[in-house]
């Protein structure tokens, strides 16, 4: 039936199969589990950073600081008229005084504070392209002509440290993934060595009966692939279950940075590469280890 196959491998039963050999599958399961989590963290952070950063980079706020309410109103209207003329600006919305009060209320306690402290008038800007200093300067110049007490700030400015922290976390996650990959490779090498040790008699026999290096290494690759597949699938499923559970909890948590939209099940698609790569890595390492050992025999 599988004529080509039987000719390439002496016998699938040559190495005892059908049961897991030692701790390797379990260690691989743990590695894959951790790698899936680290990769999911890296991907989530990266998508959150870019989407938040991108959105914020197109937003700016103009504050009219004049203390006299009449002047402030006049300057706000003049500034808004001037702003909508500018090609860089898609929208310029005056924020109603009530909303400004609501925004500040948590800091000042309840009640009407407008009477006690002069609150600035705000204009929310939506920009045509991501903000830069030049753009901010030119908008500022246009506004200051008609509203001398105006001040303009890019919204991204206050989030910059947060975004930077998120980027650092991303690097951390990437470094973790790299370390886990190295540890997994080392595990697989050790497992291949121990398999080599426990099957050395069989290897020597097949070798002396005229088995080629390729035939013997294939047997090992198959053995290792079985163990690695078991471990990888287990680790991936555990990781995926964990992520789905976490995303449910995050969905309930309504923060602008980490919410349901930043983690979605499609994230699991690229993560599927992790078990696949692990199995391929295991087979490669098994092959290299066995071929290296066989080359030392005559």
């Amino acid at each position: 039936m599988f004529r080509g196959r039987t000719q390439s491998a002496p016998n699938r039963q040559l190495m005892p199969e059908g049961r897991l050999s030692g701790p390797m599958p379990w260690v691989i399961a743990i590695m894959v589990f951790l790698t899936v989590l680290a990769a999911a963290a890296a991907l989530t952070l990266s998508s959150a950073t870019t989407s938040t950063g991108e959105q914020l980079s197109r937003e700016a706020t103009v504050q009219i600081l004049a203390p006299d309410p009449a002047v402030r109103d006049r300057e706000q209207r003049a500034a808004q008229r001037a702003l909508v003329q500018l090609p860089q600006i898609v929208r310029a919305d005056a924020v109603p005084p009530a909303d400004v009060e609501a925004l500040l209320a948590p800091w000042f306690g309840g009640g009407s504070i407008a009477e006690d402290i002069p609150l600035p008038a705000l204009i929310d800007l939506t920009l045509a392209r991501p903000v830069d200093d030049m753009m901010l300067a030119s908008i500022s110049a246009a506004v200051l002509d008609v509203a001398p007490s105006a001040r303009i700030d890019a919204d991204s400015a206050w989030l910059e440290p947060v975004l930077q922290a998120m980027q650092s976390l991303q690097w951390l996650a990437a470094a973790l993934i790299l370390l886990l990959a190295i540890a997994t490779a080392a595990t697989v090498v050790l497992a291949a060595r121990s398999a080599l040790g426990s099957h050395s008699a069989t290897i020597a026999i097949v070798h002396l009966l005229g088995g080629t290096d390729l035939q013997i290494s294939r047997l090992f690759q198959r053995r290792m692939a079985l163990d690695a597949t078991f471990g990888s699938v287990l680790g991936f499923l555990a990781g995926a279950a964990m992520l789905v559970g976490l995303s449910r909890q995050l969905a309930a948590l309504e923060t602008p940075l980490l919410n349901a939209s930043t983690f979605s099940p499609w994230l699991l698609a690229p993560l599927l590469g992790i078990p696949v790569i692990t199995v391929l890595l295991a087979m490669l390492m098994a092959r290299l280890t066995i071929l290296g050992a066989l080359r030392k025999m005559l």
């Binding site: 039987t6 002496p10 016998n11 039963q13 040559l14 008699a201 069989t202 026999i205 035939q215």
Partner: peptide, 20 residues
Amino acid sequence: RLVPHLTAFDNIALPLRVAG
């Protein structure tokens, strides 16, 4: 040098399997 986990049958068959 018989392969310990193989039956007498499989041990005898080994050279033929190796030869494809």
